[in-house]
Structure formats: structure tokens, C-alpha cells
Design a protein around this nucleic acid. Structure first.
Lengths: 210, 210, 210, 210
DNA sequence: GATGAATGAGGCTTCATTCAT
DNA sequence: AATGAATGAAGCCTCATTCAT
């Protein structure tokens, strides 16, 4: 991300880099992406200088955390598609399963600032695109199965992901967990192919959501 | 003497206060609740000094904006309960109809900081409580009607509100609008009394969500 | 410079602004234009915030000091032209007399950074241009008088100014003063219309020196 | 043991040291003596660590570059004294000829910081002293010749050197060169033994200028 | 009361120097 | 011995809040 990809990092530098991203992920999730850089550094067990050597500024760090997370979600999506018997099951698993994983990326999208930072990044764009392609094929397959209602597109599903997985500010963690799970479940029922209200507008496709 | 909260403000002071809240609402919605105080003042057409005379610090302003908004939502809820033929219809209308109204209050809840500020406030608590009571009675009635699935509580519905109405960072506004409407519609279908997955956990009641 | 020229500053603000420029002039002269902003603020008797309210960043301050000084030199040049019986005398007086005055502007030109800052500034350009026009007419007149050697242009004279008036890093102040005066005197003798070496190159005009 | 200054450096260490000084000379000349150490190291093709092994801190490096340059000037002075037919010619050659040579040392003296660093250094003092002695004898001889005006001392001449050879911030290089040459020529005419203004103060001797 | 100036703490970032590999 | 990573002090600047006009 920040270093020349040609030159692989020295072992200790690599370790530090990873610690920093890990720490940032947790802290971003807990306190949003605007916590003082010093706090991130401290929590990663390094000096600010080290942090800045690895990531020239806050934006670079935010991007790196986001890339890291997007990549995980993509992996998850692929694993789900492969492991589950039906596309519908894969979607359901994704909606449930990514919750933990996405804690921080979603958080990273809560902030206007973070959003601005990420919107331009080409690496993020690529990951995003790959993820949407994956979701799109699941959506199509699940619709052919007859599990998923026909009037939704990959864009709709992605937006639901985004809406649902973005965390509320942290409250009682037990309740938070139950609540999220229940929201997801209700949403899944809403997605089922069965009689319901016709949806307004038109199905949103992969390209409708930027 | 005139600082006594009972004493109604002089007309011009009142006008200032309202201008400030109105301006803050817009700015909070657009740029989040952490914009410089000076910007808010400018956009309200007053000096910072005036802003601070009216609201001793940022927290007070955030609280005031939130109170203003909560009050509107409560009004909405009551109006819906009264005007709609069924409780279910009232809930649906609320889920749809509050979207505009809540733009800003939801935004105000996007930020960790804002959340911290509001969680302790007794006036907010009261409004919140009143709103939840209103929702609870709608939920019960809609369940008795047979419209609303039996396994949800007022807390679940409130969380759905919160999750859904929180805005994503601003993107293509047309798409944003369609998307939100569709998410809400899917959610409503998920709430319908009809065969679906059993929800995890237990119904969340009014008091479960703080 | 930094404030909207339309709105004249409030009396106290004006006073502060002047104090800041005065302090900066002295400090720039003593320690170069890269002293910590805090030091300048302290020495002007204000907080950093005030300094930054008046001058959005260091560059703005450097520019303001330079403008202030250029203006003085220009005044000096005009006063000399008017008061002295001959153009030659005016030039000589300028070379001597500006020494004190120019302490800081010259210093401001010692630093690469400062030079970069000033080179683009349109206000500085204007002042510069006015000054050069003034010098040019003195040069012409002094050459017609027969006092000044014919093979020099306004650009040459300006460069001599610049070279001579730039201060060396501060050493024994008494010696510094004597030394500068003597250098100037030698230079003046070099400029006299009398037999000497032909100068290399060609006379440098007003526009040759940027 | 090998840190003993007497012990000559190993060949590769020596090479490193020379590369560093050469690089520093160029960079100091181009960007002043305050460029980041890392930049100097990079441009010398070594790591910072190596730079610091050779020069314990920035001051040491500045001193080393200055010593290197002073030594060259001294050589120049001696060569000129020996090669030129008259002392006057030697002085003139020095004034002209050192321009190239001194580019960097002069630059190194532009900065207050550098000046502070050098003023105390005994090695520099020695070189300085040797140089002034050389100049002094040229001055005396040139005055006896009748070429050089009688009312100047070695200190005056040295100050003229210093004043003239210090470079202005880089501008159009062609003009810069012409301009410097012309300033020197004018100065030389000013130094000629011929009727002129009596100089203010008293001749500055070798010891007057620190 | 209103205004906008002043203050200074706090976050960001750079870079001289030290240290592990 | 060379390298480049890590450290942290120090400068820059912003902005919440207070205060003089």
C-alpha cells in the first residue's frame, strides 16, 4: 500500500505494519476513524514515527485498513459460494457471517471523511467490483433456485449489507449482537421469494451503487 | 435572572436560537456533527459569541438539535397512529414517512461523539421513552390484527428504524432515495406475519435497547 | 494582506497585526525567517492563535513583512530622489541610508524558502517594479550628470543593493556596521564615472533581474 | 581503536566519507544546509546509519564540508599568489576565480545556523587564519605596487569576498553569472588606487573580522 | 446583548538521532 | 561495518471556548 511493492518489507517492518493495521482496525471500530494517530500507535505498541513511516498520513492508514477488510469479505464471499449447497444459503451465510468480519470496514464507512478517502482509491474500487460480481452471481443463482425474490438486484443486496452491517454506536454488546442478528433475520425473510409488496423503483444492479 | 430557564426568551433571542438550530440541523446532516462551531454560527447568520451565549458548548447544541428532532418524530408517530386505519398501516407509514423527517436526527446519531452526548440526556430520554411507548402500542395492535409477525417487540422495530434511517454518506441522491425506499420495503415484507425463519434470540422490548 | 481589505480591522486587531509584523521583522532579522511561529507570537505579546488568525500561515507572514519593508524602501527612494540635489547623491544616499531600513527585507531574501515565497507574490512584484522604475530614472539622470559610469543599468545597481544589503550572519555589531559602510563606499567608488576596467557582459536593465 | 582520529580510515570507509562530503556540498549549495540528513545520505548512495557513523551529527558534517572548502580556497590563494605577476593581479584573480570554487562554502555561510556551527570550530579558525595571512600579504604588496588603494586592510578585502561571493537564491543562471561578474568588476574598480571618497571608519585588519 | 478577537490546548506530521538486523 | 527501521521531541496549525469592545 504505502511502500514500494517491489521491495518486500524487512521482517520487523512487516510485523509492525501488521500490528498497526490490526490495532487500527480495532480502534477504528471502537472509536471511529478519527482517533488521534498517537493512540493508534500506542495501541500498536510502536511510536508515532513508525506509524508515519509506514503510512504517510491518516488517509493512507484508513485505506490500508479498508483494503485489508474488503479483501477478507471477498474471501468470505468466495468461501461461502463454494461451501454452501445453494446460492441462497451462501447469501444468508454471508449476511450473518460477515458481521464480525466487517465490524471495522463498515465502521470505516460510517464517517464522511473515511468515505471520501475511500471513494477514489483504485485498489478499493477493484476489490469492491470483485465483491459485487461475486454477489451478483449469487443473486442470480438464488433467484433461479426460487429462493430469492425476483425483483431485487445485486445492488439492492449490497445496499442491505451496507445498511445492516454498519454498526450502531456501541451499546450493551449482548443486546447489540442479538439485535443485529434479528435485523438480519427479518431482512432475510423480507428477501425470500414469497408474496409481499411490490418494491418501489427498479431493481438496483451492480453498477447502480457507484 | 433572565438566565432562568423558565423565563421565556426575548423575541430576538428566540429567533436567534431557532436560526441556530435550523442551521445546525442542516449542517449536521450535510457534514456530520463535528463541523467547526464558527461555521455553524456563520451559516446561522450570527457571531460565535451569540451561539455560545445560547448554547454553552457543542454538546448543548447537539442535544438541542436532537430534542427538536425527536419531538418531530414523536408528533409524526402520533399523527400516524391517529390517521391510519390500522396499526400496521401506521407503522408502515412511519417507516416510510419518517425518512425525510429523520434525516438529521439520524445523522446526529451516526457519530460516536453525538451518541455519547445524547445517551445521558434526560430530556432526550423522556422523548425516547414516549416514542417507544407509542411504537409499542402500535406493535401490539398490529400483532393482534394479524398483520405483524408475533415474534418481534417494540425494541426490534425501533432498531430497524435506527438501522434503516441512518443515512449512508451522500452518494448519487436519486439512487440513494430509491435504495432507501427499497430497503424499507424489503424490511416491511420481512416484518409481515407470514411463514419465515424463526428469529434468533428473543423479542426485544422497549427497555432492552437502553 | 490577509484580511479582506474592504473591512478595516477593528482597532485592537489592527494593533495586534502591527505588533506582529514589527516583532517578526526584528526576529526574522535576528534569526532568519524560519523561527518557530510561537516565538514570534510570544515576542509580539500575543498567542499563536492570534498570529494565525491574522496570517493564515508562515508564508503569509513572510509576505506581509516583505511588503511592509519594500514599501518603506520605495518611500525612501522617492524621498531621496526628491530631497537630494543630484541623482547621484540620491543613489548614494539610498545605498547608505537604506541599510538600517532594509535589515529585515534583505534578511528575508537570504533564505531560499523566503525567496520562493516572495517570488510569486503580485503585491511584492508591484512594489519591486515601482522601486526599479525609481532606480532606473535615478541611474539615467546620474549618468547624464556624468557622475555615474555609463556602462551600468538599473539592474546592475539593484543587484549591488541586494548583494550589499543582505546582511552577513550577525557578528560583532560595531565591526559589522563599519564594514558594511566601507563596502558600500568602495562600491560607490567603483560606480563612479572614471577610468576603470570595462565591465564584462552587458548592462543589466530593469527587466533582466526578473 | 579504529575510532582514533589518527588511524587512517579503511579504504571503503574513506570512499564513503568522500562521497558524503561531495554529496553534501552539492546539496548544501542547492538547497541550503538544512536539508534532511536522509536526503544527503540517499544522494551519497549510503544509508543514514553510515552517514551518522562518519559524522556524529549534522554539525560535524557541516564543519567537514566547510573545512574541505576552506582548504580549497587557501590552495587557490596560494596558487594565485605564486602564479600571477603582481599581487594585484593575484587578488583580482582570486576575486574572480574563487567564484566557482566557493559556491558551496559561501552557501554554507548563508545560514545563521551554519554560521553558528562554524564560528567556534578550531580547525576552521586555523584555515581562516591562514587564508587571511595570505590575503594580508597580497594586500600589502598590492598597495606597495600602487595598484590597490591604501586605505583598505585585509579585513576589508575579506569582507568584500564574503559579501560578493555569497550567492543569491538561484535565479536565471545566465543572468546570475553575468551579474556576479559585473559586481565583482565594479568592486575591483572601487578598490583601485585612484581618487575617490575617503572611506568611513578605519581600515579593517585581519583580526577585526573575528 | 451581539460581535468577533484572543487564547492555548491538542492533533498532525517531520526529521534528527539511536538501535536492531 | 552498513543498512534502514524505530523513536520521540518539536514545530505547524486548527478550533473550542473565553473575553474585550
Amino acid at each position: 500500500m504505502s511502500a514500494d511493492p517491489q521491495t518486500p518489507l524487512r521482517a520487523d517492518a512487516r510485523r509492525n505494519r501488521d500490528q498497526i493495521i490490526a490495532a487500527a482496525r480495532v480502534i477504528f471500530a471502537e472509536h471511529g476513524p478519527e482517533v488521534p494517530m498517537e493512540e493508534i500507535a500506542r495501541s500498536a505498541g510502536v511510536g508515532v514515527g513508525t506509524l508515519y513511516r509506514r503510512f504517510p498520513d491518516r488517509d493512507a492508514l484508513v485505506r490500508a485498513v479498508a483494503v485489508d477488510n474488503f479483501a477478507r469479505v471477498l474471501e468470505d464471499a468466495r468461501a461461502a459460494a463454494e461451501a454452501e449447497p445453494t446460492a441462497w444459503a451462501a447469501l444468508v451465510r454471508l449476511l450473518y457471517g460477515s458481521m464480525d468480519l466487517q465490524l471495522s470496514i463498515q465502521l470505516a464507512m460510517v464517517s464522511m471523511k473515511a468515505y471520501e478517502i475511500l471513494r477514489e482509491d483504485p485498489v478499493i474500487s477493484d476489490l469492491r467490483q470483485s465483491l459485487l460480481i461475486e454477489v451478483e452471481s449469487l443473486v442470480r443463482a438464488a433467484q433461479e433456485d426460487g429462493h430469492l425474490r425476483k425483483d431485487v438486484g445485486a445492488g439492492d443486496v449490497a445496499m442491505l449489507f451496507a445498511v445492516l452491517l454498519r454498526r450502531l454506536p456501541p451499546r450493551n454488546p449482548e443486546i447489540a449482537e442479538i439485535s443485529t442478528a434479528r435485523c438480519v433475520a427479518i431482512m432475510i425473510d423480507g428477501l425470500r421469494a414469497q408474496p409481499g409488496t411490490p418494491l418501489p423503483g427498479r431493481p438496483l444492479g451492480r453498477d447502480d451503487i457507484h
